[in-house]
């Protein structure tokens, strides 16, 4: 069963509605004791990454999250929390991935936030992207991105530059797009995560 880590960053109605629709069981994690009841975790998040990190620190769960050895998926800002640093609020993050969250540079005819459906290219063989064709569209809304890194990038997307649409290291995963809003491919990804 998936434990959704609650720390006050954003609404999770769409995420839980999608899990309900897919018949994937989940519960909420507020405390260290709650963590033990689940065999995998989702870290959701929308909004300001620096503010989100502050809220996460207020839960007191940061050491436990860093020490997790069960599958853990960060979504959008929840993924950016896993990186070392974010330019949004110039904030130190969890540093589970030694990569940076950066602001999109200004570029002619590229609008920010990066809003809409863009193609995601899995670059490694991993069950998270099982049954999802390479180049499928997923739904993005973000102004900050995680830099591309051969060691940690699981899937990439091109917008202004090539960035990490998904990262993977041991039991930790992150996706920049919103699988709960990404049609059937997004649903497949969440199903994949529930059995990873």
């Amino acid at each position: 069963m998936i434990g959704i880590i609650r720390y006050g960053a954003g609404n999770i109605f769409s995420l839980t509605a999608t899990l309900d629709r897919l018949g994937i069981a989940y519960g909420m994690v507020y405390t260290e004791d709650d963590l033990e009841q689940y065999d995998r975790y989702i870290i959701p998040g929308v909004g300001h990454a620096g503010a989100a990190m502050q809220k996460l620190e207020h839960t007191g769960l940061v050491p436990q999250i860093k020490a997790l050895n069960k599958p853990t998926l960060g979504i959008c800002v929840g993924m950016q929390l896993l990186t070392a640093h974010s330019e949004e609020g110039d904030a130190e993050m969890l540093d589970i991935f030694p990569v940076k969250t950066l602001h999109f540079p200004q570029a002619e005819s590229f609008k920010v936030p990066h809003t809409g459906w863009n193609q995601v290219f899995a670059e490694k063989d991993n069950p998270l992207f099982a049954n999802i064709p390479v180049g499928s569209h997923f739904y993005f809304v973000h102004s900050y991105f995680i830099e591309y890194d051969e060691a940690y990038t699981l899937a990439s997307t091109n917008y202004i530059n090539k960035f990490s649409a998904s990262i993977w290291h041991n039991n930790f995963y992150g996706v920049q797009f919103h699988p709960e809003k990404s049609g059937t491919h997004g649903e497949t990804l969440l199903k994949n995560f529930s059995t990873i």
Binding site: S14, A17, R21, V141, H178, S182, G183, T184, G186, E187
Partner: peptide, 8 residues
């Protein structure tokens, strides 16, 4: 809508 629809 949010319960049923998988697009924004």
């Amino acid at each position: 809508v949010a319960r049923q629809i998988n697009i924004p």
